[in-house]
């Protein structure tokens, strides 16, 4: 009887030790990253999109492939709606996110950003020929600082144009706040889950204007079904959008962020990023 008891005890101890060993292994594995999962929208061309075969392609996936090669990390891309991206990141469903995410103070409260790899502009778009004529097809770039007093003259110009109209924006972007703060009182604002949805509604006549990223519009306006849509007004760039677009990490993985920062610095320095932006955006939008 005593023999059996000892045997049973030994068995329990054995399992306990194995368990502890595994735990140590997994904990220690966290410190050495060999594989990461990256989430991207795969529906925001040309930054990221789903290619005809079903694979994810675009500027960001290619940049990511380059960075991962530098760091000798195995990278897996996964599609995720923008809506749930930050909460899912925090829940640990993936390790970093990449979706033309602009660095903003609110976001910095909840996630950690890498150094920026791009800085783009926002612009209005319209589909109604009359509105296009009134606003003028988009040409030069206007730089806004984010300071209300300094930006007032241009904002007032926009307000006259947008008064009484309906503007569509993608929800939760850096542009959302800009549009809401400056035009909520004079125009009605509709928030959409995906950027292509407001383009559809623009053509259907449900909204008068859309406001989104220049790069997004450049890629979709190429498509034949969108030929009635044009960018109007001026392209808005400058410090108003903050430092630019960057990768997002959980705040508890600083070592991973450091690795990527290193790789990004290298990619920016040797012109890889510039080359990729010119390939996908036909312009250099490095910060």
């Amino acid at each position: 009887m005593t023999t059996i008891k000892i045997k049973a005890l030994t068995k329990q101890v054995k399992f306990a030790l194995i368990g502890v060993a595994l735990l140590c292994a997994s904990v220690s594995e966290a410190k050495e990253w060999t594989a990461v999962t990256i989430a991207t929208e795969a529906a925001y061309p040309p930054w990221n999109m789903t290619l005809p075969g079903g694979t994810i392609g675009g500027f960001e996936p290619e940049l990511m492939a380059d960075l991962c090669a530098r760091m000798k990390l195995k990278c897996t891309l996964q599609a995720q709606d923008w809506d749930g991206m930050i909460p899912s990141l925090q829940a640990g469903k993936f390790d970093l996110i990449m979706d033309a995410i602009v660095i903003t103070p609110e976001r910095e409260k909840v996630i950690a950003f890498s150094r920026p790899y791009a800085a783009t502009q926002g612009v209005l778009a319209a589909s109604d020929p009359e509105l296009i004529a009134r606003a003028g097809v988009a040409g030069e770039v206007v730089k806004l600082t984010g300071d209300a007093a300094l930006d007032k003259p241009y904002i007032d110009q926009m307000r006259t144009l947008l008064k009484g109209k309906t503007i569509g924006i993608s929800s939760g972007t850096a542009y959302t706040q800009f549009v809401e703060t400056n035009f909520k009182d004079i125009a009605s604002i509709r928030e959409y889950k995906k950027s292509d949805e407001h383009v559809l509604d623009l053509q259907a006549g449900r909204i008068d204007f859309s406001f989104d990223d220049v790069t997004f519009f450049s890629s979709v306006l190429d498509m034949p079904e969108n030929k009635s849509v044009s960018m109007v007004g001026s392209k808005i760039g400058g410090p108003i959008w903050g430092p630019g677009e960057a990768l997002g990490f959980r705040q508890d993985t600083p070592e991973l962020k450091a690795k990527f920062d290193e790789a990004l610095s290298a990619a920016l320095a040797d012109g890889t990023v510039k080359r990729l932006t010119e390939k996908w955006f036909k312009a250099d939008i490095t910060p």
Partner: peptide
């Protein structure tokens, strides 16, 4: 489809506060 019902407002709040 952009109707501001209870769920729509909830998603909006989450967008802003995470």
């Amino acid at each position: 489809i952009t109707v501001w019902d209870v769920t729509g407002i909830a998603q909006q709040i989450i967008q802003r506060t995470y």
